[in-house]
Amino acid sequence: METETIRQVQTREEQFIFLYERAFPKTAAFVSRSGGNLEDAKDVFQDALILLYEKEDPESIQDKPSYVAGIARHLWLKKAGKKRSQAEAASEAQSELLEPNERQVSKRLLRYVAVAGKKCMELLTGVYYDKLSMKELASKFEFSGERSATAQKYKCLEKIREVIKQRSLNKEDFYE
């Protein structure tokens, strides 16, 4: 299980189940001891899984269950507004959780492109969020090869960029 990559769609679900089984009890115990409920534990654990997934190289982490439990613990302490001690402050986790430059994306615009540009958004998500190689992208979206996948990627970038351009004329989309 540990040798499979979390970015492979076919194994992603198995990896999440594996992480729930191994790490969620630790998170739940910690949240329960510090006054939280099951929903709190589920929330912070979900966010911890997302942070693991978004890490530059998740496969470099040897012990993913401990990593996820550590992040969830940190998130819970933050959520519960408790001061954490230096020992609990995993510097790696801290740097990942802070994204001061990330702008709030307009939910309205997101809803719009999710419908108007669904296919392109799925393809671009494969490239920029799931970090698939062009070969994997070609296989997933059934393109003839890597060159075709690359060309389609740029076409989609242009399409969504154009949608944003048009919608930016409607200022409400950007200043909700």
């Binding site: 979900q46 997101l110 969504i160």
Partner: peptide, 21 residues
Amino acid sequence: HQQQTYELVKAYGRLCLKREI
């Protein structure tokens, strides 16, 4: 607008992943 596209794609990817989880 291209910068906004990348931000939007990240938000969309996160939304889909959250649904999956």
